[in-house]
């Protein structure tokens, strides 16, 4: 699985409260989460995420188990999130809803293209190619199915 997008740089320890605040959770209307994604980090970010790859510092998605965080990022048009490590519940959630996560420590430059290949395990940006940590076999299967809902629709 390959992908390409413009880099959006973020810091370390981005928690899921910052991704989508508790005050927006009580709805099934995904457009509300998309409208307010990363609002507490930068209110202008939500409208600029389509077609991007988020390149963050370690421990992205730590904190609350709220799956709305992963859904909001995916539905805002983000192609993948790259970070040296992730909050483990967010890690499972993102794969489960079909948002690729890549464990890789890269230098981020805002706006420049980032290309990745999940199957072969590399990320390329700014003229550098970095190896990424492969997903587990199960996670690859879930992601290939488009998420855990589709996985169980076909495997159940």
């Amino acid at each position: 699985m390959q992908g390409r997008g413009r880099a959006v740089c973020m810091g370390t320890d981005i928690d899921t409260d910052v991704v989508i605040a508790g005050r927006y959770l009580r709805t099934k209307d995904h457009s509300i989460w998309v409208a307010h994604v990363f609002e507490d980090l930068d209110p202008s970010l939500a409208s600029r995420l389509n077609g991007t790859v988020i390149v963050a510092g370690k421990n992205f998605g730590c904190g609350s188990s709220r799956e709305q965080a992963a859904i909001a990022i995916r539905e805002a048009g983000v192609i993948a999130v790259i970070a040296p490590s992730f909050g483990r519940i967010f890690f499972r959630n993102a794969i489960n809803i079909g948002l690729p996560l890549i464990e890789c420590d890269i230098t981020c430059s805002e706006g420049i293209p980032v290309t990745f290949d999940l199957t072969s395990g590399w990320v390329e940006t700014g003229g550098m190619k970095y190896p990424s940590r492969p997903l587990s076999v199960r996670m690859q299967e879930i992601l290939a199915a488009g998420g855990l809902v589709n996985y169980w629709r076909t495997h159940g």
Binding site: E67, N93, L148
Partner: peptide, 20 residues
């Protein structure tokens, strides 16, 4: 341990889940 909603939905259905 904690999981998100979709992992939990699969547990409702199958009674099990994967762990590392």
């Amino acid at each position: 341990t904690g999981v998100g909603a979709t992992d939990m939905a699969a547990i409702w259905m199958t009674g099990e889940t994967w762990f590392r």
